[in-house]
Design a protein around this nucleic acid. Sequence first.
DNA 1: TCGGCGATTGTGGATATCCACAATTAATCG
DNA 2: CGATTAATTGTGGATATCCACAATCGCCGA
Lengths: 199, 199
Amino acid sequence: MSAQVYLVDDDDAIRDALGWLLQSRGLACIPHASAEDFLAAWSPQMAGCLLLDIRMSGMSGLQLFDRLLELGNALPVIFLTGHGDVPMAVSALKKGAFDFVEKPFNDNELLDRVEEALRLDAGNRASAASSESLNSRLERLTVRERQIMELILAGKYNKVIADELQISMRTVEVHRAHLFEKMGVRTAVELSQLMTGRR
Amino acid sequence: MSAQVYLVDDDDAIRDALGWLLQSRGLACIPHASAEDFLAAWSPQMAGCLLLDIRMSGMSGLQLFDRLLELGNALPVIFLTGHGDVPMAVSALKKGAFDFVEKPFNDNELLDRVEEALRLDAGNRASAASSESLNSRLERLTVRERQIMELILAGKYNKVIADELQISMRTVEVHRAHLFEKMGVRTAVELSQLMTGRR
DNA sequence: TCGGCGATTGTGGATATCCACAATTAATCG
DNA sequence: CGATTAATTGTGGATATCCACAATCGCCGA
């Protein structure tokens, strides 16, 4: 499943028109006629962006947005609205919406925003992926190894670590070698670069 | 100069009213009657936040905002407007405005936003300060020391560094000790933690 | 021209790390 | 119970790092 432009609008004509518009720039579009529909189809792995109408019968676009936030949605959301007001726009953006566009919109501007959102999402996914791979490596560490990793990251010598944990230096060396192996690093410096920012 | 709430509005009554309102929560306010006034008084060291009216004779709030962005302003900006429209709000927020509030506003909400902005600024200042101190330490390094620091951060052994730079290991050791001293670290791990993210 | 600074190098000894070879103990799981 | 895994420890040698003591060379400003 590659990057998609998800579109949620209860107006058939708009879905059609936007579908064609997006296609004109080679963007694949997956339309949904209601917030409920999209919510049912949603999964955290969806990549791309979401074009979201606000005024819809049933669940509103804003309600869907809030729900998606709770679910941990990462898709950049571009709101579309014919009847937006300022507080609504401000609140949406402050909650993390990518953009907030009033209808009628300029086709090219909208397409530009969509492409910008797609780029953002691609970047997010990439860094999320590398952070995922790091996490999976971390999970393979035993408790003891993680413990010792912390002390290494605190810049302590094996000897000091051994003292603090009341074990022999040799044991520390073994754990150290194991965790370096599991984390895929060769030196404490590399480990620290992997880990700084996290934790 | 501690944290201040800077206020720019060309309406005398609003300046007065907001001044009293802010005072009611113990917030010091420095009013300006025009964008030009504030711009003349502005300096990068100003700490606090900026309450900025949009519609003003002369330079508008939005124009002032853009100018301040160019100048590297760090003050969080809360726009106040009686005649805002959605695209204006969206554009301001996407450019980094802290908030965008329509008049008439709810007093307590506005005060909450102001306090939030002040907290944000305080945090920003704190991290900017520590990053400043790091930069000044970096500038005290000689060219050679910086060069060797890079190689240390690449996780290379002194021996390898010596080979690459075509100098003796002893020289590398000396530079290493010097730069650790200047950077205020005891180990390569600490150095890496200081530097990762930067550079 | 003298003094200071930065880069450079050496010696030698104290500490640390790296690692192969080897082994014991305790807990968990099928 | 037998297999697996984690934690533990030891020995000994090869490498690296840390550091005091000491010194040379070139450049630049007073």
